[in-house]
């Protein structure tokens, strides 16, 4: 499977998971300079209360299908609001593991799943 094929499948699965009231606009795969890697799902119409177990499971499954071993799933919001900008599934590098501690490492980030 190519990167774009993996992202396209992830986008389709996520759109099915969140339903028609929410738009999944883009799925990006990334490798960061620090060593982190992951997928980012971008949304329109999603708020933090809408982030369901099914959404998280879908994000994890999509990440695993492209070979990632996720450490966290997190939600990034518009500062000061519950409006979700994107949901990230991330395999963390050593340094970011330390920085990404707690349920809200930053005011605009909420960790909704962490490897046990």
């Amino acid at each position: 499977m190519t990167v774009t094929e993996g992202c396209a499948e992830a986008l389709k699965a996520m759109q099915e998971a969140v339903g028609e009231d929410v738009m999944v606009t883009e799925v990006d795969a990334f490798v960061a300079r620090c060593g982190c890697s992951g997928l980012v799902f971008m949304f329109r119409g999603l708020e933090t209360e809408d982030v369901s177990d099914e959404l998280v499971k879908t994000a994890l499954k999509a990440a695993e299908s492209v070979g990632l071993k996720p450490d966290v799933v997190y939600v990034r919001t518009v500062p000061g609001t519950d409006v979700v900008i994107d949901v990230g599934v991330r395999e963390l590098c050593e340094r970011c593991s330390e920085e990404f501690s707690g349920d809200r490492p930053r005011p605009d980030l909420r960790v909704v799943w962490r490897r046990g």
Binding site: E98, E99, F100, S101, G102, P105, R106, L109
Partner: peptide, 10 residues
């Protein structure tokens, strides 16, 4: 003050 808590502690 824009960084993650783990960074600030370090």
């Amino acid at each position: 003050r824009s960084y993650e808590i783990g960074w600030i502690i370090r």
